[in-house]
Amino acid sequence: MSDDHTRVRDFFSARAADWDNRFPDDGPAYRAAASELGLRPGGRVLDAGCGTGRALPALREVVGPQGAVLGIDLTPAMLEAATRAGRGREGQLLLGDVTRLPLRDGALDAVFGAGLISHLPDPAANLRELRRVVRPGGTLALFHPIGRAALAARQGRQITEDDLRAETNLRPLLSGAGWHLTSYVDEDARFLALAVRQD
Results as ranks from 00 to 15, higher is better:
residue 8 V to R: 09
residue 12 F to P: 00
residue 13 S to V: 05
residue 15 R to A: 12
residue 17 A to V: 08
residue 22 R to W: 07
residue 24 P to Q: 09
residue 26 D to W: 08
residue 38 G to C: 10
residue 42 G to L: 06
residue 43 G to R: 03
residue 45 V to Q: 05
residue 45 V to I: 10
residue 51 G to D: 09
residue 52 T to M: 07
residue 53 G to T: 08
residue 58 A to T: 08
residue 63 V to I: 08
residue 65 P to D: 15
residue 65 P to N: 13
residue 70 L to M: 14
residue 73 D to I: 10
residue 79 L to R: 08
residue 81 A to F: 00
residue 91 G to P: 04
residue 93 L to R: 12
residue 96 G to W: 06
residue 96 G to M: 05
residue 99 T to R: 09
residue 101 L to T: 11
residue 104 R to M: 12
residue 105 D to M: 02
residue 108 L to C: 07
residue 110 A to L: 08
residue 112 F to W: 14
residue 116 L to E: 01
residue 117 I to S: 03
residue 117 I to T: 13
residue 119 H to E: 11
residue 122 D to Q: 15
residue 122 D to R: 15
residue 126 N to Y: 02
residue 127 L to T: 01
residue 128 R to E: 12
residue 129 E to Q: 10
residue 132 R to C: 01
residue 133 V to A: 07
residue 135 R to T: 10
residue 138 G to P: 02
residue 140 L to W: 11
residue 143 F to K: 01
residue 143 F to I: 05
residue 150 A to E: 14
residue 156 G to R: 06
residue 161 E to F: 03
residue 164 L to R: 11
residue 167 E to R: 15
residue 169 N to P: 10
residue 171 R to T: 04
residue 174 L to S: 01
residue 176 G to K: 12
residue 177 A to M: 04
residue 183 S to M: 15
residue 184 Y to C: 13
residue 185 V to Q: 15
residue 189 A to N: 06
residue 189 A to F: 01
residue 191 F to C: 09
residue 191 F to N: 09
residue 192 L to A: 07
residue 192 L to H: 06
residue 194 L to F: 09
residue 199 D to F: 04
residue 199 D to S: 11
